[in-house]
């Protein structure tokens, strides 16, 4: 693999992460626990789809084969999606949704912060904009984790249950392979070690205030970056891609 190929894959990973999570959050639109919260969650989904588009547009340019952001989003299949496994997990109850976002944000913020210093100017610019959005995401998802953990007995149990269920997908966030190795060397992307410690620190602080317990690092489900997903992703893509697949070549 050369650096060009690595860069393309890296942009797809970032694009797919944000796209899939945005899609999941969009499922709540109109069904949130309170009107104000419905609006807040949709703002988050909108930020993420914006970030997804930035990365997928860049991926399309890097690839240079005339494909567009939409070709990449709607015409790749399950094994070609390289998002991390956490984001494709089902919404579940609101505690699952919040917890999934919290874990994602706790990883996403230090990553995007580091990417602002990327040797690749385009990535640095995309990250520069994303950092503002993601800072707000992490702040509000942390606050909800704390509200749930230290709220009622029921919310505490729900939050802990969600955390226990989702923890197994946190390993996939930090997997590094050839793609990362090549790009780390070129100064395009950061090494995961400092991202990991930032993540650990955020999780520790927030869970302590939330009176929640950090699950033990048991078996970690990994494979997202190689296109090996949970069964949920196929259904998500079937829904998301259906019109483009049913009407090949049509404009929308």
């Amino acid at each position: 693999m050369d650096q060009h190929q690595a860069l393309l894959t890296y942009c797809l990973r970032r694009g797919d992460d944000n796209l899939i999570l945005s899609h999941r959050l969009g499922e709540w639109c109109g069904h949130g626990p309170q009107l104000e919260e419905d609006i807040a969650l949709t703002n988050r989904a909108l930020d993420l789809i914006g970030q997804a588009r930035n990365y997928l547009q860049y991926a399309a340019e890097v690839e240079g084969k005339g494909r567009t952001e939409d070709d990449l989003a709607f015409l790749r299949s399950e094994r070609q999606f390289v998002n991390t496994m956490l984001v494709e997990q089902l919404n579940g109850d609101y505690a699952h949704t919040i917890c999934r976002s919290f874990l994602y944000d706790a990883w996403h913020l230090p990553l995007q912060q580091a990417l602002t210093k990327s040797a690749d100017e385009r990535i640095a610019a995309i990250a520069g904009k994303a950092v503002k959005e993601v800072s707000y995401h992490l702040r509000t998802s942390s606050e909800w984790m704390i509200r749930f953990g230290d709220g009622t007995e029921e919310s505490h149990v729900r939050a802990q249950t969600a955390l226990d269920a989702l923890w197994t997908f946190t390993g996939d966030l930090f997997v590094q392979d050839d793609v990362d190795a090549i790009l780390v060397k070129a100064g395009v992307v950061p090494d995961m070690a400092p991202i990991r410690s930032a993540f650990d620190k955020t999780v520790e602080t927030v869970l302590a205030e939330a009176t929640l317990e950090r699950p033990v690092d048991g078996h970690m489900a990994t494979g997202g970056r190689q296109g090996k997903h949970s069964e949920h992703l196929g259904y998500l893509l079937a829904e998301m891609q259906y019109l483009q697949r049913a009407h090949p070549g049509a404009q929308w």
């Binding site: 309170q34 104000e36 703002n43 606050e143």
Partner: peptide, 20 residues
């Protein structure tokens, strides 16, 4: 106006509702 459980949430909700 809007509803929120506490002042912090009210500010955040206001940001999401009234400054889109």
């Amino acid at each position: 106006s809007l509803h929120a459980a506490d002042a912090q949430m009210a500010i955040e909700n206001a940001r999401d509702v009234y400054t889109r």
